[in-house]
Simulated scan of single mutants.
Amino acid sequence: MRSFILSCRHQLGVGLPEVMITLLLLSSGSLALTQLQLRNLQTAYQSQTLTQQTLIRTEAIEQLWQQRCYLAALSSAARQDYLLTDYAELFSAESGDPAFPASFWQTHRPATADC
């Protein structure tokens, strides 16, 4: 019992290396959790953006189908002007964009046999 008391008296507390290692481990864990949270936010934002783009493209295709007979009777330039004027939020005026009316019409052209 006496040796136990003597050994307790010689221990003065936690040393600086133990405290530094503990702080290093805690800070590394906190940084890892922060990084995971940021990746989660980026993925959620990308998912939301992709969903919005998909909804816009779907609405544009629906407009093509609803007005397929009228649009099929128009020339390419008149069709492009009509779609850009009346549906500017769905179609893009930039020729390289997939939502450009001419390329969108070629890609998603609805059937017009019943017109």
Results as ranks from 00 to 15, higher is better:
Pro98Gly: 07
Ser3Gly: 11
Arg68Pro: 09
Phe100Val: 02
Arg68His: 11
Gln11Val: 09
Gly15Asn: 11
Ser47Asn: 15
Ser27Tyr: 08
Cys8Thr: 00
Leu16Trp: 00
Ala77Phe: 05
Gln37His: 13
Tyr87Gln: 07
Gln42Leu: 14
Gln53Arg: 12
Ser28Arg: 04
Leu64Cys: 11
Ala93Glu: 10
Leu55Lys: 01
His10Trp: 00
Leu16Asp: 06
Leu83Phe: 08
Asp86Lys: 09
Gln35Asn: 12
Phe4Lys: 15
Ala32Ile: 08
Leu36Pro: 02
Leu36Asn: 12
Ser3Cys: 10
Thr43Trp: 13
Asp114Glu: 00
His108Asp: 03
Leu55Phe: 09
Leu50Asn: 15
Ala60His: 04
Tyr70Met: 07
Glu89Trp: 01
Asp97Gly: 02
Phe91Asn: 04
Phe100Glu: 02
Ala78Asp: 15
Leu16Cys: 00
Asp86Tyr: 03
Glu94Gly: 08
Glu18Lys: 01
Ala93Gln: 06
Leu26Pro: 06
Arg57Thr: 08
Asp97Phe: 02
Leu25Thr: 10
Ser3Asn: 12
Ser75His: 15
Glu18Gln: 09
Tyr45Ser: 14
Leu84His: 10
Arg9Tyr: 05
Thr51Lys: 15
Leu12Arg: 00
Ala93Ile: 06
Leu64Ser: 09
Gln42Arg: 14
Leu74Pro: 14
Leu71Lys: 11
Leu84Gly: 09
Ser27Glu: 05
Glu89Ala: 12
Ser75Ile: 08
Leu74Cys: 15
Gly13Asp: 05
Tyr70Ile: 05
Cys115Gln: 04
Arg9Val: 06
Leu64Arg: 05
Glu18Gly: 10
Ala102Leu: 02
Gln52Gly: 07
Pro101Asn: 10
Gln11Trp: 07
Gln37Leu: 12
Leu64Phe: 12
Asn40Val: 08
Arg57Ser: 13
Ser3Tyr: 05
Ile5Glu: 15
Asp114Ser: 05
Val19Tyr: 04
Ile5Asp: 15
Leu55Pro: 00
Ser3Thr: 07
Ala102Tyr: 05
Ser103Pro: 10
Leu71Ile: 10
Val14Lys: 06
Leu16Ser: 03
Cys69Val: 09
Leu71Ser: 14
Leu36Lys: 07
Ala99Cys: 06
Leu90Thr: 03
Ser7Asn: 14
Thr34Lys: 11
Ser30Tyr: 10
Cys8Met: 10
Thr107Val: 01
Ser7Ile: 04
Thr85Arg: 12
Leu74Glu: 15
Asp97Lys: 08
Gln11Cys: 10
Arg68Ala: 13
Ala32Leu: 14
Phe91Gly: 08
Ser30Met: 09
Leu16Gln: 01
Cys8Ile: 01
Gly15Tyr: 03
Thr85Phe: 04
Gly29Leu: 14
Phe4Arg: 15
Leu90Glu: 00
Pro110Met: 00
Glu89Thr: 06
Ser75Glu: 13
Ala111Tyr: 06
Arg2Val: 02
Leu23Lys: 04
Arg57Cys: 05
Ala72Arg: 08
Ala99Phe: 02
